[in-house]
Nucleic acid binder design. Structure first.
Lengths: 334, 334
DNA sequence: GACACATGGTATAACGTTATATCAAGATTA
DNA sequence: TAATCTTGATATAACGTTATACCATGTGTC
């Protein structure tokens, strides 16, 4: 075996032309069964693997989809990735994941490389502070793009997201219904679009039901930080009896913090999370949280991409999924 | 703007030949400052983005590295990915992650697509049950490959891994030193290579120090399963006062199980984890565990890849990193 | 003034596919 | 029998780069 076998090698081995070999490999054109099997046999014998670069360059098609996401380790994201790839792989596409870690530069490099390699489509959670030229680049190169979770304003891309404001409103109503009046919003650091929406839902409900005053407390998105933030929050606002959290990880941290203060989550202070990550169900006590099935969300995302791919000039689709309140043990009456 | 700009478009705009434009874009060859800036300006004006497929096809070079891994959501893996990409990106490479979810088929498809696209290098945690032809394919196509964690026997690939047997031996010695005699090994399901090594280290120490008898108890790698397995283990072997765990997630589950039995981790039953995931430090009680810095491991992996890339025919490098015992609160005297 | 040599630029053949047009030969029809 | 259609296969020009070889100039050197 000397050098990578190419279509020419296979064709020669099978005693046919390159064009014929190509058609057999793609299952296209009109080829007799006899020559088809001849070519197939030759390809197998030589361990022929087609070169996608040449193929996609010539055909203008590429069944590789990129998924630019921001925290690969978040179990929620991981499930989304599973949903996305299960569906797309079943359709013969291949999904590769790029973690931008919320850094616009890194994201830019990824998308650049993506365009350079002529990939077939892009699933994308745009980093906050994404420069405009990134959008322009994608539109200019006519890359089928679906944004996820974060919807850059004025973008003409398809989008799949979560009804954030609705979800936190629901959570706040739930707590208010249990008699809580001093409900705080805990978690997140910067005013990202998603967080802004969630806070809006919370604040709207607070003023609608005349509760208050609204308290927003920042926290980094790790357990430890959530714990510390909860303790600091209670120190500053001892009247707080319930918190709506920006995410489950912070919520779980908050529960630890409550314990540290000698109190019991769900009895003394109620906590609602967001995401319903696997740990939420098995934590002690199990976490009440806003759930959207990430796997299903991933499938939805994939479906939108498939539609866009099959109809490049179809209408822009924007779909938002509602979150459900999953009642567990961290919320209770005052 | 009509159609994607290519090198030819840029060259025409700048009034030079394609060859010259190409040299400018690559910063190669001998070009005067005057024409260089002419070309650069033209490229910018036209928003030219080179096509990597054509380039890599012609040059035989590709600075895209694939990382085939098995559970993207595992925080340990996520950190490894960070370490890998930080180093490789600094060197101008780009890392895309493919999650094979331990399915040899999916893995096969990924690697296939990988070869098809002529990527530059492969970092790879081989799925158990990886068929031989996958190895052969990679060697035949001379893809620079570094395996990670799992080292397929007889593979001629570079490798970076953890000294598993040494680590569990250390853990077992530690427990024995605290006076424990009935130490069990908890976690893992199938006899993967890694688990085999870890069990070997545990068993060797058990017999070496004449403890025993050795007990191996299976568990799926999620918290809930760890909890249930721990309770079942104690039911079957009530004399057990310590467990060495296959991973932190199971270990944290085990701690829950111990609590459920009305006992206290670290006082009544000692637990040692493996991986030192972020949660280990903030759990209650904080988990004693075997730590290898996944970030550093990722960097090491990247470095091995860089060496291989710069010296394709250099000697095969196999490096194994020792794990350290991190003492926290889940181990104590009998 | 003949020679070498450095400098700046260009023409052109690959790289491995696929799409298009074309062709030969046998089958069908009028 | 000539004209048309089908079937199965092929030749060839792209796709957008880069590497190689080459060709003009100008610049020293003896």
């Amino acid at each position: 075996m000397t050098g990578k076998p190419k279509l020419e090698t296979v064709a020669r081995e099978a005693g046919v032309s390159i064009a014929t070999a190509s058609q057999v490999m793609r299952g296209a054109g009109r080829i007799s069964d006899k020559t088809r099997s001849k070519v197939l046999k030759a390809a197998q014998k030589l361990h022929y693997v087609p070169d996608n670069r040449a193929a996609s360059m010539r055909s203008g098609q590429n069944r590789e989809i990129g998924f630019v996401i921001n925290k690969i380790s978040n179990p929620f994201n991981a499930e989304v990735i599973s949903g996305v790839s299960d569906l797309l792989e079943a359709e013969g596409y291949l999904v590769s994941v790029l973690d931008a870690r919320d850094d616009p530069d890194r994201q830019g490099r990824h998308i650049d490389a993506f365009i350079r390699n002529g990939r077939g489509g892009l699933l994308w959670v745009p980093a906050e502070q994404t420069p405009h030229k990134t959008f322009d680049l994608l539109t200019a190169h006519r890359i089928p793009t679906v944004t996820f979770l974060r919807r850059p304003e004025g973008s003409g891309f398809d989008h799949v997201g979560i009804r954030n404001a609705e979800a936190t409103a629901l959570a706040t109503h739930h707590l208010a219904g249990l008699g809580h009046r001093h409900i705080a919003y805990l978690g997140g650091e910067e005013l990202t679009a998603v967080r802004r929406e969630r806070i809006a839902g919370y604040e709207a409900t607070m003023s609608e039901r005349d509760l208050g005053p609204a308290v927003i407390w920042d926290s980094n998105d790790i357990k430890q930080a959530g714990m510390e933030a909860m303790m600091a929050l209670r120190a500053a606002h001892p009247e707080t009896t319930a918190v709506v959290c920006n995410g489950d990880i912070v919520a779980l941290g908050a529960c630890h913090g409550i314990r540290r203060l000698g109190l019991e989550p769900g009895r003394d202070v109620s906590v609602v999370g967001f995401d319903d990550i696997p740990d939420a169900a098995v934590a002690t006590p199990p976490l009440t949280t806003m759930a959207v099935s990430p796997y299903q969300l991933g499938r939805r995302l994939a479906r939108v991409m498939l539609e866009r791919l099959s109809e490049p000039d179809g209408p822009v689709s924007v779909s938002e999924v509602s979150a459900e309140l999953v009642l567990r043990a961290t919320t209770g009456p005052v």
